[in-house]
Write a protein that binds this DNA or RNA. Sequence first.
DNA 1: AGCTACTCCTGGTAGC
DNA 2: TGCTACCAGGAGTAGC
Length: 284
Amino acid sequence: MPELPEVETVARLIRPQLVGRTIVGSEVRWTRTLGGLSRPRFARAVAGATATRVWRRGKFIAIDLEREGTPCGALVVHLRMTGRLHVELPEAGLARYVRVALDLDDGRRLFFVDVRKFGRFRYAAEPEVLFRKLGVEPLGDEFTPRWLAAGLRRRRRMLKPLLLDQGFIAGLGNIYADEALHAARLHPLRPSDSVGGTKARELHAAIVGTLAAAIEREGSSFDAFYRTPEGRPGSYQHQFQVYGRDGKPCRRCGRTLAKIVVGQRGTHLCTRCQRAPRGILSRL
DNA sequence: AGCTACTCCTGGTAGC
DNA sequence: TGCTACCAGGAGTAGC
């Protein structure tokens, strides 16, 4: 599933293809992908607009637009589970899953391909409004061990759902939350306000380290879905310590890894490395 | 405030 | 072989 490392990879790779290009036409094959805007309104909003910047906020990709030098909103893309962006030539087998296509002034097209239709390709006059509810950028300056320790203390929640809350930290998803908790030896059900300064520092390092290492490998691909805009799979799946490894031995201690459900999400962990909090007998 | 359940979608797969 | 039932999963929303 595209999380921060995958989204960052996509943004980096489509940036040089899009910046400076003007949108001369649009085709919408699945209206709900637009997130509420009608096709004509969308078409009017983007026609004639030029892309000035491609950037990432949490799991969103933003493409800033302008007309005659005046900013005029942005395209705000969320890949959700199966969304992809390609400039030109989506693989032939995926052509039927194209939901939106934009015609560019150099004759190429920007394709938004999304098998499960959960992704969004929106136009926003004021993208900042969409981003206001997002939490801290985990690779930004504001995300420090001190900030995390204070945040964990203040929010009294189970660690796993808290890490997935985009209003707390923007960009973590199911995979990297599980990997970070394992790296920090913290149980996903542990109440956040029971985590002291030392463990908070470990979790901070685990989050930053996991995300940075995954970006270096262009994210994770373990099924047919996530690919870079060039069609390449990422390779961080080979570094997974827990995600998708239930039933296999923990690489750190040898214990068979477990899979439980936390907040309707599959959650992978080592019950030896990640000790259950007091009072949690067994949800295994 | 925080938790759970439900919804959106489809391809893949387990089970028969 | 072919069928059905069920599952995964971000995020928004509703209800407790």
